[in-house]
Design a protein around this nucleic acid. Structure first.
Length: 197
DNA sequence: CAAGTGATTAGC
DNA sequence: CTAATCACTTGC
């Protein structure tokens, strides 16, 4: 069952980032085959106040426009010349918060992910934000997609207790000064698919 | 550990 | 218009 709009439109971005751990990310392939993975790692980006967010200070450009959409929209962007990143927009319209999905545990049709990723140990299929987009076939065509539509969506899968979720600093945002220290990253403790390094 | 890769952005 | 930057990955 798809998560309802109300799950996404709340303003408690950090709480939503934590609740996303254990949800299932589902993407149907061109031939209708379902590929899915359980979210095991997320990072929250708190829009206007967060120096690490693209939408810091409500900066509105062609790229960040998607972050201002209603909660439950996909924000996909291209980075480092080769990788896509998949984010979930949360909050109301014009409240540019988003949650980066950093890692998944493969659930359905793992062999399709193996195919897309090339020769890789299973542990490396989806254990990072760029990797999981390749494994799931997520690209710029998914930017601005509605997570209540048929292209890509999230479902309930497994419930994690707070004691099973670890909290820490976000990765790769050293330029964000005091916001680089914020512990806005969440992951499933002891899960082998959490990103390393 | 370092380089690759090109869209995006800010600054002329 | 130009140049710098980047929410990363892989193979040396």
């Amino acid at each position: 069952m798809k998560l309802p709009r109300e799950f996404y439109t709340r303003e408690e971005t950090l709480q939503i980032a934590r609740e996303l751990i254990g949800k299932l990310l589902v993407v149907p392939m061109a031939d209708g085959t379902i590929v899915s993975g359980m979210i095991v790692e997320t990072e929250a980006y708190l829009g206007a106040i967060d120096k690490a967010a693209h939408s810091f200070g409500n900066r509105r450009t062609k790229r960040t426009e998607t972050m201002f959409a209603v909660g439950g929209t996909a924000y996909v962007f291209f980075i480092y010349g080769m990788y896509y990143q998949f984010n979930v927009v949360v909050g109301a319209v014009d409240s540019p918060h988003a949650i980066l999905i950093r890692a998944l545990e493969p659930i359905q049709n793992i062999e399709i992910m193996r195919e897309k990723r090339g020769k890789m140990p299973d542990k490396n299929l989806t254990s990072g934000p760029g990797k999981l987009c390749i494994a799931m076939g997520i690209d710029k065509n998914f930017n601005n997609a509605d997570l209540l539509g048929d292209k890509i969506w999230l479902e309930d899968y497994k419930v994690f207790d707070d004691s099973e979720i670890a909290v820490g600093k976000r990765i790769g945002i050293d330029y964000a000064e005091e916001f680089a220290e914020k512990e806005w990253r969440f992951w499933a403790k002891e899960n082998p698919y959490v990103s390393r390094r």
